[in-house]
């Protein structure tokens, strides 16, 4: 058996899986999207139909906000946790990563417990200001849920990246007169850029497609996955939901590609 043949043989399972579970259903999805009464124009409806467009914008904004805030929180926390030794550190890290296993439904449930009608924040605010603060069912509740969902994932990636930082680089910058801020700006952040892109991409994609949390909280929010669900199950509108699905995939992929090319030079340099 030649070496080349052996390599091809090893690639066979991958090819089968790719075709069976990825290419075929994807192709079918794309075709279904164009099978509505408007034909291919069904895809255009994602952008022209006001309700769809608003939902799309909502979703992208929410996912972007989640990604940015997650990165900020996780970077500060991850840096601190990796660089400092204090009693209870191991417990804290374990607790931070505890929600990793929770499905979106549980996260939604937690948000309701926190900011719902009978929630903790409501109780507290009614006692303090005489008014119940309830935001679990708004876009803010969803935002909080997504944060809760993505922060543990991103913290772990950032911590691993911080551990690999060369302390010598920071000391060199300081010896050249760099203030702590300048060290962060010129040395630490560029070195962490690949980790930001990798973990930010996952946070963004997760927030774009998250369904469980939105479903649990859904009262007055419209995000794309929810829209797809309603079109599919309630309106039995197969072609629209397929078109929306393809749209969701393409838009997410496109934004991630832009982010990657933006940080590309930084990634290459730090690699």
């Amino acid at each position: 058996m030649s070496h080349k043949f052996f390599v091809w043989l090893c690639l066979l399972p991958l090819a089968v899986v790719t075709v069976a579970f990825f290419l075929l259903p994807m192709a079918r999805l794309v075709v279904t999207g164009a099978e509505g009464p408007q034909g291919l124009a069904g895809y255009l409806a994602i952008l022209t139909e006001p309700r769809y467009r608003a939902t799309l914008i909502n979703t992208v904004m929410l996912a972007a906000a989640t990604t940015i805030v997650t990165l900020i929180v996780a970077t500060i926390a991850g840096m601190f946790l990796q660089r400092h030794r204090f009693p209870g550190r191991a417990v804290l890290i374990a607790m931070l990563t505890f929600p990793l296993a929770f499905p979106g439904v549980v996260v939604g449930f937690l948000i309701i417990l926190l900011a719902g009608r009978q929630g903790l924040i409501g109780d507290l605010s009614s006692r303090l200001f005489g008014e119940r603060l309830v935001f679990a069912y708004s876009i803010y509740g969803l935002f909080l849920g997504y944060l809760y969902f993505s922060i543990p994932r991103v913290i772990l990636t950032i911590m691993a990246a911080v551990q690999k930082l060369d302390v010598g680089l920071e000391e060199a910058a300081r010896s050249l007169g760099a203030s702590p801020w300048a060290v962060q700006r010129d040395v630490v952040m560029p070195a962490l850029a690949p980790a930001f892109v990798a973990s930010g991409a996952i946070a963004f994609a997760t927030a774009m497609g998250a369904f469980g949390t939105a479903f649990t909280l859904a009262t007055n929010i419209d995000v794309l996955p929810m829209l797809i669900y309603t079109e599919f199950t309630l309106a039995a509108n197969f072609s629209t939901s397929a078109a929306l699905s393809v749209g969701l995939g393409i838009i997410t992929w496109f934004i991630l590609a832009i982010a990657r090319s933006f940080s590309g030079s930084a990634v290459a340099a730090a690699g």
Binding site: D166, G168, E171, A172, S175, A269, A270
Partner: peptide, 13 residues
């Protein structure tokens, strides 16, 4: 002070 480190610690970016 000017410092030269054993690993050089040059900024890769």
């Amino acid at each position: 002070v000017g410092m030269v480190f054993q690993s050089y610690a040059l900024f890769p970016n």
